[in-house]
Lab assay of single mutants.
Amino acid sequence: LETFPLDVLVNTAAEDLPRGVDPSRKENYLSDEDFKAVFGMTRSAFANLPLWKQQNLKKEKGLF
């Protein structure tokens, strides 16, 4: 999966995202380093959170 810089994904409308980016899964296009910096946890820890908590975190970080 291709990764993009944080500033390309945060608070970006679906139509302005790079081609192929799923707007409902912007976090998947962050590098592992950016993911950890944004969410303060690994991808696996994030995946283990309840869906509502994942969505709330994504909203807080501008990735929803």
Rank of each mutant, 00 (worst) to 15 (best):
L63K: 02
V10R: 13
E2F: 09
T3W: 13
K26H: 03
F35R: 00
F35W: 03
E33S: 11
W52M: 09
A45C: 10
T42M: 08
F64H: 15
N48A: 14
A13S: 14
E27H: 03
K53T: 14
L57F: 04
L30E: 01
P23A: 10
D32W: 05
D32I: 06
F35H: 00
A14I: 12
D7R: 08
L17R: 02
R19S: 14
E15K: 14
N56L: 11
E15I: 11
E33I: 12
D7I: 09
F39A: 00
T42Q: 07
N56T: 11
G62R: 04
G40Q: 11
S44V: 13
L17C: 06
N28F: 11
E2N: 10
K53A: 13
P5H: 04
L17P: 03
A13E: 09
A14W: 12
L1D: 09
E15W: 01
M41Y: 05
L51Y: 13
V21M: 07
G62D: 05
S44M: 13
F64C: 15
L9I: 05
E33R: 09
E33G: 09
G62T: 01
E27R: 01
F35E: 00
P50V: 02
E27F: 02
V38F: 05
G40C: 09
L49C: 03
V10N: 04
K61S: 09
L1M: 12
A45G: 07
T42K: 06
V10P: 02
E33L: 10
T42I: 07
E60M: 10
S31F: 02
F4G: 03
A47S: 11
L6F: 12
V10D: 03
G20R: 07
G62Y: 05
F35V: 00
E15V: 11
V21R: 02
Q54V: 02
F35Q: 00
F46Q: 00
R43Y: 07
L30S: 01
E33Y: 10
E60H: 07
E27T: 03
A14S: 11
A14H: 12
N56Y: 13
G62C: 09
N28Q: 15
L49H: 01
S24K: 11
L57A: 05
K58Y: 04
Y29W: 12
A13T: 10
P18F: 01
K61M: 08
K58E: 02
T3P: 06
N11A: 08
L1E: 12
G40H: 10
D16W: 07
P50I: 01
D16A: 11
F35A: 00
E27M: 04
E2W: 06
Q54S: 02
F4T: 03
G20F: 09
L49D: 00
K26S: 04
K53W: 11
R19Y: 10
N48I: 12
R19W: 08
S44K: 13
E33V: 11
V8D: 08
A13Q: 11
T42A: 10
F4H: 08
T12V: 15
L63T: 01
L51M: 12
L57Y: 05
R25S: 08
Y29A: 05
S24V: 09
N11P: 05
D22K: 15
N48W: 07
E60L: 11
L17V: 06
A47Y: 13
N11W: 05
A45F: 11
T12C: 11
K36L: 15
L63G: 04
L57K: 05
Q54G: 00
D32Y: 05
T42G: 10
N48D: 14
T12P: 05
E27C: 04
D32T: 07
G40I: 02
T42V: 07
S24H: 13
V10W: 05
D34I: 06
K36Y: 15
L6N: 04
D34S: 05
F39N: 00
D22Q: 04
D7G: 10
V21N: 02
K61N: 11
F4K: 03
E33Q: 11
R43L: 05
K53Q: 14
W52R: 07
T3C: 09
K53G: 06
T42C: 08
D34F: 02
D34P: 00
M41K: 01
L17G: 04
D34W: 05
R43A: 05
P23Q: 08
R43I: 05
P5S: 06
L51V: 12
P5R: 01
M41E: 00
S44A: 14
T3G: 05
D34H: 05
D32H: 07
A47H: 13
K26I: 15
R19Q: 13
P18R: 03
P18L: 04
Y29S: 07
P5Y: 03
Q54K: 07
D34M: 06
D34K: 01
A47G: 11
W52F: 10
L6S: 04
G20K: 06
E15M: 06
N56E: 15
F46K: 00
N48Q: 11
F64W: 14
D7N: 10
K58N: 01
E33D: 13
K59I: 11
G20E: 09
Y29E: 03
P5A: 06
P50K: 02
K58A: 04
A37M: 13
L1Y: 15
R25E: 06
A47D: 09
D22T: 04
A14C: 14
V38D: 00
E33C: 08
K36T: 14
S44H: 12
E60D: 11
P18D: 04
E33W: 08
K36I: 15
D16N: 12
S44N: 12
L30I: 08
S44F: 12
L57Q: 02
G20W: 12
L9G: 02
W52D: 13
F35Y: 02
F64A: 15
M41H: 01
N56F: 11
E27V: 03
L1P: 12
L30P: 01
Q54Y: 00
Y29G: 03
F4A: 03
S31T: 12
P5M: 04
A13M: 10
T3I: 12
W52Y: 11
E2P: 15
L49S: 01
T12I: 10
F64E: 15
L1N: 14
Y29Q: 02
R25H: 15
P18G: 05
A14R: 10
A37H: 12
Q54T: 01
V38I: 09
T12D: 07
V38A: 08
P5L: 04
A14L: 12
G40P: 00
P18Q: 04
D32N: 08
N11Y: 05
G20H: 11
T12Q: 09
L49Q: 05
P5V: 02
P23R: 06
D32M: 06
S31W: 01
V21I: 11
E60I: 10
L57E: 03
K36N: 14
E2L: 15
F4C: 07
S31A: 07
M41F: 04
K59H: 09
D32P: 07
M41D: 00
D7C: 13
N28L: 14
A47F: 12
L6W: 08
L49R: 00
N48G: 13
R43C: 05
Q54D: 00
